[in-house]
Design a protein around this nucleic acid. Structure first.
Lengths: 101, 101
DNA sequence: ATATAATATAGAAAATCGTCGATATGAAGG
DNA sequence: CCTTCATATCGACGATTTTCTATATTATAT
């Protein structure tokens, strides 16, 4: 896959904000319409729209338009990628022949 | 485990910055002294110190003091927790009985 | 066509974050 | 004790992010 450092930050930026984590948890209950999320979220509609854009850009969430409604859900592919990236980053391959003595 | 939304943001904030991802990748080679990281990082020493604090606060990295040197390494426990949190967040348990029709 | 309803975009204010230079802390060596 | 070296903290500044109000877009219904 080989993501750049920049691309990695875009993924994890999605989970850097409390509101977005809360949205994520709401989506664990399955696909939700934007209006349902808005009810739960104590913020204005443009603010929700902004957060949904960041979540979708990260690939962790996908949106689907149906008529005038937007439905959002957790992306199985996106979250798998994120877990992979995190596990890859966690791999330590060296012994750490340090250093300044 | 049961982390709050706030605690989750602290974990992923660690990987929201390109420099910190780069530091993480350097630590994949094993424990490194701060001075080694500084050489690789094109930033000032206070900036590196600031990033290391955020990385340690996230639990993904641990620091060890030895004399006047600080050694940093990837935390196996912290990264496992992070992967767990991410996998837990990715679990969809509902069908999404939506919604506004 | 016009009105209504859901969502997105633009632009600005406020808060947060990343960065720096200056300085403080703490450990080792003369 | 005094100096030197590695790292941490402080205070400031610019950049980015979050949030809002106002407005635009797009789809449905009358």
């Amino acid at each position: 896959m080989e993501l750049t450092n920049k691309q990695i930050t875009v993924i994890f930026k999605a989970l850097c904000d409390e509101n977005r984590v809360q949205i994520f948890r709401l989506l664990q209950g399955g696909e939700k319409c934007a209006c349902k999320l808005l009810e739960a979220l104590q913020c204005t509609q443009p603010t929700l729209s902004h957060h949904m854009k960041i979540l979708c850009d990260s690939g962790l969430v996908v949106g689907r338009k149906e008529g005038k409604w937007m439905y959002y859900s957790i992306s199985a592919e996106g979250t798998l990628t994120a877990v992979d990236v995190l596990r890859e980053l966690s791999k330590v391959s060296g012994s750490g022949e340090c250093c300044c003595k």
